[in-house]
């Protein structure tokens, strides 16, 4: 009988070892006081979207890099500098979590595992149905990345891509802009920018749409690629909301949103541009 009991207890005990950890905080209420009292704010980003955010080794990290929660690696970039400024303004520590693009909004609005998304995200009306957005913290122009030796490298207008296979990142403004390139073939979107870069290098696709700073970072590590700036009138027509990037908070977090906006208002346009330039410079 003892043996039967042991036979049953082993699996039961191991099951109970899974007794759940602590889930995120309440998503339906204003958590400002709770976050301040807790002493840290949790920011979600991809850590694979240079120069907004990227991963670095512990050994190579600069002063601006922050440890990625749950790993020994660090995250650096423009977003991290902004996140640090926001955390400092709130008077709390900064905790950074690396989350895939698709998982960012669910992690904020559904699970409450993060408090802010600072990930180069544009405040589109669709996203604003689920989360609330701060004022913009960067604004950029959109460019097209191609192989330097491709026939499309000489294009001067977004209409010069007839027959080109153009791919964007799933669920982003980049993918939404591709239909403006009349005559181009709109390929199925891919999950992240590194994968898109690989698909262009290998010839599966011919071009992609990206923000200028990201394109600069890509060209630094991939000299066989080039990006095309367009003159006003021959580039993309972008909504105000789409050209900007903003910080996302839960809709119930009204006080936190006001505090984030106050923190952003304290950063001048020159400071921002300086942060972006030095992020591009730091990017390995």
């Amino acid at each position: 009988m003892k043996r039967i009991l042991a036979f049953l207890l082993v699996p039961l005990l191991s099951l109970s070892a899974f007794a759940c950890g602590t889930p995120g905080i309440e998503i339906e209420q204003d958590n400002y006081a709770a976050i301040i009292e807790r002493g840290y704010v949790v920011v979600g980003l991809e850590c694979q979207y240079a120069p907004f955010n990227w991963t670095v080794n512990a050994a190579d990290r600069g002063e601006t890099a922050v440890l990625i929660d749950g790993t020994d690696a660090y995250c650096d970039g423009y977003d991290v500098v902004v996140a640090q400024a926001v955390a400092t303004h709130l008077g709390v520590d900064l905790v950074v979590k690396a989350i895939d693009w698709d998982g960012l909004i669910p992690s904020l609005a559904v699970n409450g595992r993060i408090d802010l998304i600072i990930a180069g995200m544009s405040p589109t009306p669709e996203r604003a149905e689920t989360v609330a957005f701060s004022a913009e913290y960067y604004r950029s122009t959109h460019v097209v990345v191609v192989r330097a030796d491709s026939a499309f490298a000489d294009a001067t207008s977004i209409l010069g891509f007839t027959g080109a296979k153009v791919v964007g990142q799933l669920g982003t403004i980049y993918d939404d802009l591709i239909p403006q390139m009349t005559g181009a073939l709109h390929e199925n979107p891919l999950s992240d920018v590194p994968t898109i870069v690989t698909s262009i290098k290998s010839g599966i696709n011919d071009a992609t749409v990206l923000e200028r700073p990201v394109a600069v970072a890509i060209i630094a590590g991939n000299p066989e690629l080039a990006f095309i700036d367009f003159l006003p009138g021959s580039g993309f027509v972008v909504d105000d909301a789409d050209a900007a990037v903003a910080i996302a908070v839960r809709q119930a977090d009204v006080t936190l949103l006001a505090a984030v906006n106050a923190a952003l208002a304290a950063i001048s346009a020159e400071t921002r541009e300086g942060w972006m330039l030095s992020a591009i410079d730091r990017q390995p």
């Binding site: 694979q48 240079a50 990625i68 790993t71 690696a73 690396a98 992240d192 590194p194 290098k201």
Partner: peptide, 18 residues
């Protein structure tokens, strides 16, 4: 952050997946 996810982040540092 198991091996494959870690690799995806590493690929993202220089945008070099291959």
């Amino acid at each position: 952050f198991e091996l494959f996810n870690q690799t995806r982040r590493i690929a993202g540092i220089h945008y070099r997946q291959l």
